[in-house]
Computed example of a mutant assay.
Amino acid sequence: MHRLAVATNAETFERMQAPLAARDIEVGHVETAERTLPLDESPFDEYDIGFVYPSRIMEGAVADAMLDVPWVNDREAILRSRNKADVLARLGRADVPVPETVMVSNPASEAELTAAFEQFDPPVVVKPNSTTRGVGVAKAHDLDSFLGIVDYLDLVHDYRAVGDQSFLVQEYIADAADYRVMVVDGEYVGAVERRLPEASREQGRWKHNVHRGADAEGQALPAALRELAEDAADELAIPYLGVDLLVTEDRAVVNETNARPTIDSATKYEDGFWDDLAALIRQTAEQ
């Protein structure tokens, strides 16, 4: 039996315990953040493999050193997926369709910012380069609003301790369906459509993040969209990946990726999902 260290204690940890135990993989929680960690002796039990590298990179490095295990999605995979601009640049160069995007490295002159805004038909989406769950993402309908959003980002980036001082200006794709597609070891294993309740849409809400109130409903995707998600995971070389697709009547693009995606309820995945995940875990442990 393999012993799997899981660096989260939320839905994913709870949902994976019984299915993986049935496949001879014992799941344990390793608490890596919001605690004290003496550095002279490991407080963790013995494990064979980790799932996935902790979200806090500094604390994760300490846990990684103490556990000394291979990870399903290692540190490099987490950092690559978290950098939205890196993902879009890699995918775009590989001819995987992505939204039109400009990266801004702060500080940039008002002339440069204006030129970036004018490349798009408003509105534009402004998003921090490395946040998750839709944090800090805004929509600007005109130049003054855009420059006002940038002013707030300037204030945040003025703190020298802020490591990432970049953000993205991106086309707004209206009326797009928003899918989170799961790919395990290069293969499509299921998808959900994230959709805001009607009442929220009537209030002008537009972000489809589940953590912002959207519902996630299981969907059977056509082959072309499955292949698009698989192409993205293959190009990024990330074995366990959530791929976010925006789909309209005439196009589909990879909007973002998540190398630490939450595992949803089993009804939202293809038959064999847990077998595929268990196989990836065993394969990683044997590396």
Rank of each mutant, 00 (worst) to 15 (best):
L143V: 03
D144A: 14
D144L: 08
D144N: 12
S145H: 10
S145G: 11
F146A: 01
F146E: 01
F146Y: 10
L147D: 03
L147N: 04
G148S: 13
G148F: 04
G148R: 12
G148H: 10
G148D: 15
I149P: 00
I149H: 14
I149Q: 14
I149C: 02
V150T: 14
V150S: 11
V150C: 13
V150N: 13
Y152L: 15
L153T: 02
L153N: 09
D154I: 03
D154M: 09
L155M: 15
V156P: 01
V156N: 11
H157Y: 15
H157L: 11
H157T: 04
D158M: 13
Y159V: 09
R160W: 07
A161W: 10
V162M: 13
V162I: 14
V162T: 08
V162N: 06
G163D: 05
G163I: 09
G163M: 11
G163W: 13
D164R: 14
D164V: 15
Q165C: 09
Q165L: 09
F167I: 01
L168F: 01
L168A: 00
V169A: 00
V169R: 00
V169D: 00
Q170P: 08
Q170W: 00
E171I: 01
E171P: 01
I173S: 00
I173Y: 02
A174Q: 09
A174T: 15
A174I: 12
D175P: 01
A176Y: 10
A177I: 06
A177Q: 09
A177E: 13
D178F: 05
Y179V: 07
R180A: 07
R180Q: 07
V181G: 04
V181I: 14
V181Q: 03
V181N: 02
M182K: 03
V183D: 12
V184A: 07
D185T: 07
D185A: 10
D185Y: 05
G186N: 14
G186I: 13
G186C: 11
G186V: 12
G186M: 12
E187F: 06
E187R: 12
Y188Q: 07
Y188F: 12
Y188N: 11
V189A: 05
G190W: 04
A191F: 04
V192G: 02
V192D: 07
V192W: 04
V192C: 05
R195L: 12
L196H: 05
L196G: 07
P197V: 05
E198R: 06
A199I: 04
A199T: 08
S200N: 07
Q203D: 13
Q203V: 05
G204Y: 08
G204T: 08
R205Q: 09
